[in-house]
């Protein structure tokens, strides 16, 4: 069961950063591989669309 965690703790992090760009920049400064997601609210906050997207995307 703990193999998954040991893998996380003993390997370099490869990060997807969703949100604050600062966080990406600080990871880059630590030489961590990071991919920034320039996130914005899905479907402009339209809940019906968000529910559909959850099912389809």
């Amino acid at each position: 069961m703990s193999e998954n965690f040991e893998e996380l703790l003993s390997n370099p992090l490869v990060v997807i950063n969703l949100g604050l760009i600062k966080f990406s920049e600080s990871l880059e400064k630590q030489s961590v591989e990071v991919l920034q997601v320039d996130w914005s609210p899905p479907a402009d906050g339209d809940q019906e669309m968000i529910d559909l997207l959850d099912a389809l995307l």
Partner: peptide, 21 residues
């Protein structure tokens, strides 16, 4: 940079952690 998490997952299959802010 990419616009959505889906794109990020497709582009970076090696990723082991997501940071959400």
């Amino acid at each position: 940079s990419v616009p959505t998490l889906e794109d990020a997952l497709a582009q970076q299959p090696q990723a082991n952690i997501v940071s959400i802010s």
